[in-house]
Nucleic acid binder design. Sequence first.
DNA 1: TGATCATATTCTCAAAGTGGAATATGTGAA
DNA 2: TTCACATATTCCACTTTGAGAATATGATCA
Lengths: 144, 144
Amino acid sequence: MITTLTTTVIDRAFAALGDSVRLRIGCCLLMAPDGLCVCELVDVLGEPQPNVSRQLKLLKEAGLVTQRREGRWAYYALRQKDHPLLKPLTACIETACCCVDAQEDQRRLRARLALRRGGKCVVGIHPRKKKGGEARVRLPVVPG
Amino acid sequence: MITTLTTTVIDRAFAALGDSVRLRIGCCLLMAPDGLCVCELVDVLGEPQPNVSRQLKLLKEAGLVTQRREGRWAYYALRQKDHPLLKPLTACIETACCCVDAQEDQRRLRARLALRRGGKCVVGIHPRKKKGGEARVRLPVVPG
DNA sequence: TGATCATATTCTCAAAGTGGAATATGTGAA
DNA sequence: TTCACATATTCCACTTTGAGAATATGATCA
């Protein structure tokens, strides 16, 4: 995807991470190499869904993140290759992960990932906050 | 200077490098660990002096750059310590230095550094463009 | 097909960033 | 003290970004 490496490509990558929400997304994605779906990020970050989608789109346009669809869910993951900046940038994000406030996210993310079935997200946004609580979670037919 | 590491500190650092001029400044400073003065950066970048001063101030406020005065000259350097993000961030800037457009800056910087005397800047802005040319450069008393 | 749900987009406007132009500050030399 | 010069700041018009609110899209299931 990224063909020629120019300073413009690079400063756009920096700008993409120069926002607290997007940096926190980066930290979360670092914990889940296979990606996270939007609703998981919404729950972890406590940000409105349209905002999370927006920021993910920005990260994707900056070439830092990839997207794949699985049924109704869209999984976003940190790009692993084709971007020469990604390795050193990942090291920067790792530093961010050590921050106290980032670790709060990590705690919530671990809790959210525990709700997965077969490695996939099977619930929507705020499962614990909606009426009916756990009973609301209707598990569809999932292999594994 | 940086006491507690928070994600805010880090995304401000990213945002500081998320601009083409400031990223180019970062690349230049990487070539000169002891720092560059404002007039040198003005010549290399081809940006107006007030703009260079402004961007340097921003980099300084983001904790990425230090400043010291030597007579009329102000030297800015990449911060080396007290900022846990600096090492991985430096690796990112190094990647940026490999870009074709960044190497043009590097060529100009080498030429500009050749005008130093005793490792110090002794000329102002655009020395070759002002009337009188080389003759204008009046060397003050400089040790070495 | 219609309902439901996960995700994406658009509209809007306040807030922040950007950089040119003019000017101020600070330092050293005459 | 005055001048010259390197650097810093302020003012201002302009552009970009940020995010709430409402709505659209797209996929699955009944």
